[in-house]
């Protein structure tokens, strides 16, 4: 039932390339909102990559880690958006 190594490397490499593209935008975004949008996309991609990592390492607990990561990141993004909108 183990996923083959090549497929794992391909999926994880594509995901990491996506994170790298978002990180370029987060580094050189002209405004604060650009950086926040890039970080928001990086959060979603990382949630998916954590589940893929759990499938490769055959650890079921990584799915729980991905769920907690998604919840905390959602709260964080909402908090920063409220701060940008009316100064918290």
């Amino acid at each position: 039932m183990r996923m083959s190594l090549t497929l794992y490397i391909v999926f994880f490499g594509v995901g990491e390339a996506a994170v790298l593209l978002c990180m370029i935008r987060a580094l050189r975004g002209p405004t604060a909102s650009d950086r926040l949008v890039a970080v928001d996309a990086m959060i979603t991609i990382t949630t998916a990559l954590l589940v893929v990592l759990g499938l490769f390492l055959e650890r079921r607990i990584y799915v729980d880690v991905a769920l907690v990561y998604a919840v905390l990141a959602f709260v964080g993004v909402i908090a920063v958006a409220r701060y940008l909108e009316k100064g918290l």
Partner: peptide
């Protein structure tokens, strides 16, 4: 299905850039 999703993740990040 995972490959389909990975392609969509990459295209979204490319659009952000």
């Amino acid at each position: 299905i995972m490959g389909f999703g990975a392609i969509f993740l990459f295209l979204g990040a490319f659009g952000i850039l």
